[in-house]
Amino acid sequence: SPEVQIAILTEQINNLNEHLRVHKKDHHSRRGLLKMVGKRRRLLAYLRNKDVARYREIVEKLG
């Protein structure tokens, strides 16, 4: 489901952010981070168009 995919991506994004705080010059990982953020944004847009209630619920849960 989109909610699960968004939750997994959010966790991976948070982990990668911590990694990049330590390894500032790791541009390869930064590119992966940007791809993940874009994918999460697309999934959220899809969910917002399909079911606003589910969209609001996941945004509330994940912050």
Score class of each variant (00 low, 15 high):
58 I>R: 00
18 E>S: 08
59 V>M: 14
6 I>Y: 02
44 L>T: 00
25 K>W: 10
23 H>L: 03
27 H>V: 11
36 M>H: 04
35 K>M: 09
28 H>D: 13
9 L>M: 05
38 G>W: 13
17 N>M: 15
15 N>W: 15
22 V>P: 03
52 V>L: 15
45 A>Y: 05
10 T>R: 02
9 L>H: 00
61 K>D: 04
59 V>Q: 03
19 H>K: 05
14 N>P: 01
44 L>Y: 01
28 H>P: 06
37 V>H: 07
45 A>C: 14
37 V>P: 00
24 K>P: 14
33 L>R: 04
57 E>P: 00
24 K>A: 09
28 H>W: 06
2 P>E: 12
22 V>E: 10
43 L>G: 00
51 D>E: 03
15 N>L: 13
1 S>M: 07
21 R>L: 06
17 N>L: 15
33 L>I: 06
51 D>C: 05
32 G>C: 15
27 H>N: 09
35 K>W: 09
58 I>D: 00
30 R>P: 04
53 A>L: 13
52 V>P: 15
19 H>M: 05
26 D>I: 03
54 R>H: 05
1 S>P: 09
14 N>L: 10
55 Y>I: 03
36 M>A: 11
47 L>I: 07
35 K>I: 14
28 H>I: 11
8 I>T: 07
12 Q>P: 01
2 P>R: 05
23 H>D: 05
2 P>C: 15
58 I>S: 01
62 L>K: 02
20 L>W: 03
34 L>H: 08
41 R>Q: 08
5 Q>F: 08
44 L>Q: 00
61 K>S: 11
5 Q>R: 09
37 V>L: 13
5 Q>L: 15
13 I>W: 01
9 L>C: 02
32 G>V: 15
42 R>S: 06
53 A>M: 10
12 Q>L: 15
2 P>K: 06
8 I>Y: 11
50 K>V: 15
16 L>Y: 07
35 K>L: 13
18 E>T: 06
31 R>V: 10
40 R>K: 03
49 N>E: 14
24 K>D: 11
26 D>L: 04
18 E>V: 07
3 E>M: 05
44 L>R: 00
6 I>F: 02
28 H>T: 10
16 L>W: 08
20 L>S: 02
4 V>G: 07
61 K>P: 01
46 Y>M: 11
18 E>P: 01
3 E>R: 02
27 H>C: 11
19 H>C: 08
7 A>M: 15
53 A>V: 13
32 G>E: 15
31 R>T: 11
36 M>N: 01
25 K>H: 11
22 V>D: 09
2 P>I: 15
41 R>F: 10
16 L>R: 03
10 T>V: 09
22 V>F: 09
36 M>E: 02
38 G>R: 14
39 K>F: 06
13 I>L: 02
2 P>D: 06
60 E>R: 12
16 L>K: 02
2 P>V: 15
24 K>T: 12
46 Y>S: 09
18 E>G: 05
48 R>D: 01
14 N>T: 05
4 V>D: 12
23 H>R: 04
39 K>L: 13
54 R>G: 04
35 K>Q: 10
9 L>V: 03
33 L>D: 01
33 L>E: 01
59 V>H: 02
58 I>K: 00
36 M>T: 03
27 H>M: 13
33 L>Q: 02
34 L>S: 07
62 L>Q: 02
30 R>Q: 06
16 L>I: 08
4 V>A: 12
50 K>P: 01
50 K>M: 14
39 K>N: 04
23 H>P: 02
53 A>C: 12
63 G>M: 15
38 G>S: 12
55 Y>A: 03
51 D>P: 00
38 G>H: 13
46 Y>K: 11
41 R>E: 08
24 K>Q: 09
51 D>G: 02
6 I>H: 01
4 V>H: 14
4 V>W: 12
43 L>S: 00
32 G>D: 13
29 S>M: 08
39 K>W: 08
10 T>E: 04
39 K>R: 09
3 E>Y: 04
26 D>G: 07
57 E>G: 03
29 S>K: 08
20 L>C: 05
47 L>P: 00
41 R>P: 00
4 V>R: 10
4 V>M: 13
54 R>E: 03
45 A>D: 12
24 K>I: 09
42 R>N: 05
62 L>Y: 05
15 N>D: 09
5 Q>C: 09
49 N>M: 13
32 G>S: 14
41 R>T: 07
5 Q>G: 04
50 K>C: 13
60 E>G: 07
29 S>F: 06
41 R>M: 09
13 I>H: 00
19 H>L: 06
4 V>E: 14
23 H>V: 04
55 Y>W: 15
38 G>K: 14
20 L>E: 01
38 G>Y: 13
59 V>T: 05
33 L>S: 01
58 I>N: 00
16 L>H: 03
8 I>L: 11
15 N>G: 07
62 L>R: 02
42 R>K: 12
63 G>V: 15
56 R>E: 12
2 P>M: 14
19 H>Q: 05
22 V>H: 12
6 I>S: 00
7 A>Q: 11
57 E>M: 06
25 K>Y: 10
1 S>A: 08
7 A>L: 15
19 H>R: 06
36 M>S: 04
43 L>V: 02
10 T>W: 04
20 L>N: 02
6 I>D: 00
56 R>W: 15
55 Y>H: 04
42 R>M: 10
5 Q>V: 10
36 M>Y: 05
62 L>E: 02
63 G>Y: 14
13 I>E: 00
